[in-house]
């Protein structure tokens, strides 16, 4: 599997990381290098093997479905780059 410039640009877009056109060839080369390393996994016979979902055989605990936390608007907004009137503010999303 070889990553071309178009694929590298698509991956950067999906990851929401701006990558300039001039940086794409190097990025694609790095992807190819890492993916070449990962390709070894193709040698393993995984027929009938379940993909791991939990490393320790534990069942997630259950609890009553009730509110246990909240009313911390000030704390939630304390680190926001832009908070106004109790909300996170972002550039216009809907035209």
């Amino acid at each position: 599997m070889s990553i071309d410039l178009e694929t590298a640009a698509r991956v950067a877009k999906l990851a929401r990381i701006r990558v300039g056109d001039d940086a794409l060839p190097e990025l694609a080369a790095e992807f190819n290098n890492i993916l070449g390393f990962i390709e070894q996994l193709g040698e393993v016979d995984v027929e009938g093997v379940e993909p791991m979902t939990s490393v320790t055989p534990m069942r997630l605990k259950r609890r009553e479905d009730e509110v246990t936390d909240g009313h911390q608007q000030d704390k939630v907004l304390a680190n926001a780059p832009d908070a106004r009137e109790g909300f996170f503010a972002v550039p216009k999303v809907v035209e």
């Binding site: 990962i38 996994l41 995984v46 093997v49 993909p51 791991m52 979902t53």
Partner: peptide, 14 residues
């Protein structure tokens, strides 16, 4: 091809 296969290999490593 990648993620699920890696998780299967993880099962074998364990």
């Amino acid at each position: 091809a990648y993620y699920n296969r890696a998780r299967k290999v993880r099962t074998l490593i364990k």
